[in-house]
Design a protein around this nucleic acid. Structure first.
Lengths: 156, 156
DNA sequence: ACCCAATACCTAACCATGTAAAGTAATCTT
DNA sequence: AAGATTACTTTACATGGTTAGGTATTGGGT
């Protein structure tokens, strides 16, 4: 990114973002989400895929962990887990120490599927990123931490 | 997990995006979408709000225009429109020239509501953007066109 | 030892919103 | 004028989110 418009006034709140930019940003982010949701790798829905990745990340995780991690209610996770267990992608067993906990992990098949999806996603994203110039790509990656910060749930 | 893959098919990955970055980008964008969907301005759902903005943008629009614009199927739009008409926010009338077309527009109440939502969204986004440094904010706005390009529906 | 509150998950019922398939009315084509 | 096309709607279904309430397990206070 090479644009370096300096804050001429110097006032901290002069950082006022142009109305139009706000709207545009909001709309674009919303749309991106929709597009990504729709790109579901033939077979599993977005929610299930997302959950599998969460499991992989937190393995071994309890159902509650996953709900918190996904920012979703426990019943929602329970239902999704049921589906994944049915499909043989996920194993759910009782924690021997505290039998209230459901300990969740990917089965071998689940891990395999996860990797397949990963590859497929990469292809998809790569195809889309291919439309960007080098600078654009660089800028996008540079902004990643900012995007992460944006969806970090703090402010209500 | 730091493999850089350069797939066959060639040119597109000559840029060698790091595997890890791809995953991170994908995950972050997905998460952002979820977060934004949840921030619904008390009352109307995300889909309805989004539709209202589309209407405003394309006014006067036909139902088909809106479906295309929202990247959603016609029945989905029809139902959402029904709801908005019920709520008195949207007017639907037959095009006198081609009576197959449903001409859609915001009512006065709809426009008022749209502006209310706009303000509310701005507050939300502003609050979140407030956590960014000046450079981060700048970089984010700079990347906007890139994000727009990303969700532009071309490649299947 | 026993009861009771808290915890962790599940079940049930509901809602929103996406889809595909079939229906209806208007228009266009030949 | 008949049939094809177009634009929207209706219908039926799937997914995934919610809240409310149920069940089993744990652990602390008496």
């Amino acid at each position: 990114m090479t644009v370096t418009r300096s804050t001429a006034g110097g006032r901290r709140n002069s950082r006022r973002i142009r109305h139009e930019d706000l709207v545009r940003l909001r709309m674009t982010l919303g749309r991106l989400g929709r597009v990504l949701r729709q790109q579901n790798d033939d077979g599993l829905s977005y929610a299930l895929i997302s959950l599998m990745f969460a499991i992989h990340r937190m393995q071994p995780a309890t159902a509650g962990d996953l709900a918190a991690g996904e920012g979703v209610s426990p019943p929602s996770v329970t239902r999704s887990l049921n589906r994944l267990v049915e499909l043989g992608l996920v194993a759910r067993e009782a924690d021997p120490v505290d039998r209230r906990n459901a300990v969740i992990s990917l089965t071998a098949a689940g891990e395999q599927e996860r990797q397949r999806i990963l590859r497929s996603r990469e292809v998809w994203l790569s195809d889309h990123l291919a439309r960007l110039t080098d600078e654009q790509l660089h800028a996008l990656l540079g902004v990643l931490p900012v995007l992460e910060l944006l969806c970090d749930p703090e402010l209500p």
